[in-house]
């Protein structure tokens, strides 16, 4: 089975404070480390596992700046056969534009596949839409929130989708299809620095994003960003570590739990 997996390089902002600049037209990411989008890491692992089991190949594809080569090398180190970069220096804020470029690319370059995997969403824009839009455009069956692939038989995936509150649904979906993979579906393998270095020797092709779609094709506009509305907010405990912890224990005592 030949699987295309889309991987994105994103800012790792969990522990970082984000600053808006240029009157909210930009986010200052200059001091923030980048990494492979978490969900894509699970998607690559799932694709590689399938191919290790039944043969075929995994090709990692990324849309982004030249630095996105990092995430392609990581995907190769995890077991992808090769990598493709659709290079653009400009950030893309419309998932429909992203999907349109992918659609045109796959057609024009005549890329063959049995399945396309994406992560459910990316950590930066959280749209959770590119895979579904692409499936709609390509007229391929689609499933998102895939939390387990139970079997691949007679040209069908039997898989489980994560719903809410611990519930899942099992569905059957016909290949070729597009699946958006949910985090937690597997345990992504460890990748060493050596592995990533070795991956540099594997071919990565580069295409120009603009040859397949242009920014003018976007059908939504990002006007600007803003900070979330402040709600009441917490009473902040400050001071020495010792005092803070004593205060925490006081609160627990008052609540009668400790």
């Amino acid at each position: 089975m030949d699987i295309l997996v889309f991987v994105k390089r994103v800012a790792a902002t969990q522990e970082e404070e984000l600053r808006l600049i240029d009157d909210g037209k930009n986010i200052d990411l200059s001091k923030i480390p980048f990494k492979m989008n978490d969900w894509d890491n699970y998607a690559v692992e799932e694709a590689v596992k399938i191919v290790e089991g039944q043969g075929g190949s995994v090709t990692a594809i990324s849309i982004g700046s030249a630095e996105s080569d990092e995430v392609l090398r990581r995907a190769i180190a995890m077991g992808s056969k090769d990598g493709i970069l659709m290079e653009t220096q400009e950030a893309i804020h419309d998932p429909a534009l992203r999907a349109q470029a992918i659609y045109n690319f796959l057609k024009k370059e005549d890329i063959k596949f049995d399945a396309i995997f994406t992560g459910v969403q990316s950590e930066d824009d959280q749209f959770a839409a590119t895979g579904g839009i692409l499936a709609g455009k390509m007229d391929l069956p689609y499933a998102s929130m895939v939390i387990g692939i139970d079997a691949i038989e007679n040209g069908y995936f039997v898989l489980r989708r994560e719903l809410e509150g611990g519930l899942q649904e099992r569905i059957k979906i016909k290949a070729p299809c597009i699946l958006s993979i949910q985090s937690g579906i597997n345990e992504p393998r460890y990748v060493s620095i050596m592995g990533i270095r070795k991956a540099s020797k594997v071919e990565r092709k580069t295409f120009k994003f603009n040859d397949f779609a242009s920014r003018g094709d976007a059908i939504i506009d990002l006007i600007k960003w803003s900070y979330p509305e402040k709600k009441g907010g917490a009473t902040m405990l400050t001071g020495e570590m010792d005092e803070i912890c004593k205060e925490i224990l006081e609160i627990l005592k008052k609540k009668g739990v400790c």
Binding site: A11, T13, Q14, L18, L20, I27, H93, E123, D124, D125, Q126, I220, D221, L222, I223, K224, W225, S226, Y227, P228
Partner: peptide, 11 residues
Amino acid sequence: YYSDKVFGQFK
């Protein structure tokens, strides 16, 4: 965006 750290305004 980024788990509610900022919000994008779209049209």
